Simulated scan of single mutants.
Amino acid sequence: MTTASSAASMNAIEERQIAKANRLHAAADEASSAGDHRRAERSCRQALAIFERIDGQRSPDVANLSITLSRILGGGGGDRAEALKAARRAWEILEPLRGSTPELSLLRFLARQQLGVALREAGDFRGARPLLLRAARTAERRFGKDSIELALALNQVGILCKYTSRYEEGLTAYRRSLAILRRELGASHPELASIHHNLGGIEHHRGRFRKAAVQAARSLAIREAALGRSSPLVAADAAAYAAILAELGRRREARALYTRAHRIFLRVYGERHYEVAMNTHNLAALDASSGRLRSAETRYRRATELFTQAIGRDHPDTALARYNLAALLATLGRPEEARAHCMHALRVFEGAFGKTHPHTVSTVDLLTELDGLSGITTSRRRRVRRR
């Protein structure tokens, strides 16, 4: 075979491999949209391996797939550390590249935004904020004030604002995002379910439970119509709605929705997963509010273990579970045992949110009661619950 023939043969093989990688990338996106994060991760890693072999470790194609991998790992409540690692890799590849082609500019925008998302999911809210705000500004400048890209970027800003108690800023971002998506996609498009879900979440945080319930019910209805009852994304909507119904005193309905969601999460993800941890935590809170204190203790302890395995001992969600366990132990007359959990939660909350955040203030109040009393009554206990 001549050199020219050999080169042509190699090029043909490479082109087939690239086409295969692109099909795998598309399959990963499709599986992720359907909530099948295991299949999405598998397809994405296969595509990534092909481009690494063809282009090397630091090509734009590798960065693009690293962005997708980070989104899949984080969006599925999977390995947050690996999601952050993939996002950092993408940014480290793209940030030093010179040139301003539309393709490269778009990749830089997506990499910056995904790094902000991954930092937020890892509990680094201060690191996430400038990246997500800049991504939103870039989306508006590059794609326009009515673009879907801007709507999705605003959604990410809104999520961050919920966690950091910037409620009015978050509501503004969500409402603007919802208006764009409704105009561009229609009121029943599945993408709108995420915004309704998040609007319900921020109203839940603010204690405006009836408003939260309207948004959560809408999210569940849209997503269930699009994906069916067995999707893990639908299960996440059901669990969020359940948390709000519990606050409204509709505990039987809440427990049914939690149980339904729990079965789906276990089937799709297995037990050691973020969504299972959060649902276990919320079932514990429901048990506590229903007077099932021993069951609540068991579930809070299990939720703490699962959160630690899924996202680490110093993540704010792990600290939240430990705070609620501390409050319950105090109610059960075990203040010394409660104090150790409360101290850990305080350290994490102060580091993540600062001294004036409601979680930090509630934890300081609980510590003060623990220091002054041998136990606290249920009526004085300050419980924080969040999905």
Rank of each mutant, 00 (worst) to 15 (best):
Q57D: 14
Q17K: 08
E30P: 02
K211Q: 11
H344F: 11
G78L: 06
G170C: 00
G270T: 11
L257S: 01
R272H: 13
S295P: 00
D314G: 04
R347A: 15
R176C: 04
E203Q: 14
R108G: 08
S295Q: 13
R272D: 13
V268F: 13
R210V: 10
A212N: 03
A243L: 02
R347Y: 04
I159A: 13
R302T: 03
F125K: 05
V62G: 08
E336V: 15
T2C: 13
R339C: 05
W91D: 07
L283W: 01
E169I: 00
F51K: 07
L69Y: 02
E305L: 14
I50P: 06
E15N: 14
A179T: 11
S33I: 00
A242I: 02
L104M: 12
G77E: 05
T360G: 07
L178H: 01
E82K: 15
D55W: 09
A19M: 02
R218I: 04
I195T: 10
K355F: 13
I202R: 00
D29S: 15
R134Q: 14
A135T: 07
T363V: 12
E184N: 15
Q309H: 04
L266H: 13
Y167Q: 00
G123P: 09
R380P: 05
E82N: 14
S374T: 14
S59K: 02
L48Q: 10
L320I: 10
D317I: 04
Y167I: 09
V384F: 12
R383K: 03
R229K: 13
F353A: 07
S177Y: 01
L160Q: 13
E224G: 14
G78A: 05
